[in-house]
């Protein structure tokens, strides 16, 4: 391969990422410490008030008063993303294990069935849950058929949001978990039984430790997009239970406080980078293997 091609072949990719990603993120970092413009937008003047706003409100006499409003949103984001990750993990392990025990033909079909919904437009998948959980929706009707009281209000709850998040991202958990469960040598499970370990001992001492890499990778692959999710809180949470993604979005839409939106975006970015750094290599490799 010629020296010239080695250089010019990578130039478009680098140029694209520098122009549309690296430089813009540096600008976001800059805007997060800029001054809020009088009519939306911002002015280039160093001002940390956007970060201060996350913790405090400024009172009448310029005194700072602790306001948990935004800390609550950040906490809720971590909690819901963590909850969705945990539920995905608990669901994915048995399903992935079950798939790994099937014939190779059935394995291919089942894995295909796991990934298929992932190809369906995100907005359509969230909308589908809106129909199921909505007022007078499918769930309420079924509930009534079985003699339940006239209840409503599945929608616009944390449960609805977490259901939507699990549904959206669970394929990203199953695939890496399957990849590590599939590689477990059956002889190891037999050995544990020969040593008088029961099923649960085998699960605890053999299967879980060997599935750990897949479980970690899957957790990162689910947790990271959940942190920045926008559609589920907007449509299934009804905009009442804000998460960081929706909070950022509103700052660039109706509410229009760009520096504050940029500051929240930086906090989100830092949370994501921290999560990735905790297990960078493995997550990257698994993500590539998944695609």
């Amino acid at each position: 391969m010629s020296k010239a091609f080695r250089f010019w072949g990578l130039v478009p990719a680098w140029a694209l990422m520098i122009l549309t990603l690296i430089v813009p993120i540096l600008i976001v970092a800059g805007v997060s410490v800029a001054e809020r413009g009088a009519y939306g937008g911002f002015n280039w003047a160093f001002d940390l008030s956007s970060y201060r706003q996350i913790l405090y409100t400024v009172g009448w006499t310029d005194e700072l008063e602790f306001d948990p409003k935004y800390v609550l949103i950040i906490g809720r984001t971590l909690l819901f993303a963590g909850g969705a990750t945990l539920i995905s993990l608990l669901l994915a392990l048995p399903v992935a294990y079950y798939i790994s025990q099937q014939s190779s033909r059935l394995k291919t079909i089942l894995l295909y069935l796991v990934t298929l919904p992932f190809w369906v437009s995100m907005i359509v998948r969230v909308y589908a849950w809106l129909i199921i959980l909505g007022n007078d929706g499918l769930l309420e009707r079924i509930y009534r058929i079985f003699g339940g009281a006239d209840i409503s209000g599945f929608l616009f709850t944390p449960g609805a949001m977490i259901t939507g998040m699990v549904y959206s991202y669970i394929p990203l958990m199953i695939l890496p978990v399957y990849a590590s469960v599939e590689k477990i040598d059956p002889a190891l499970i037999e050995a544990s039984h020969d040593l008088y370990g029961g099923r649960w001992t085998a699960l605890k001492r053999v299967i879980l430790p060997l599935a750990a890499p897949g479980l970690t990778a899957g957790s990162i692959l689910v947790f990271v997009p959940c942190l920045g999710t926008v559609l589920e809180p907007m449509l299934l949470g009804g905009g009442k239970q804000l998460m960081m993604g929706t909070l950022i979005q509103t700052q660039f839409g109706g509410a229009r406080n760009w520096p504050f939106g940029a500051a929240i975006a930086m906090v989100l970015l830092i949370l994501v980078v921290l999560t990735l750094l905790l297990n960078a290599r493995r997550a990257g490799r698994q993500m590539e293997a998944t695609l």
Binding site: P24, I25, V28, V224, L227, G245, A265, V272
Partner: peptide, 11 residues
């Protein structure tokens, strides 16, 4: 690797 909302805001 990065959250889409951050990239969207950035561009």
């Amino acid at each position: 690797l990065l959250p889409e909302i951050v990239l969207a805001v950035a561009v």
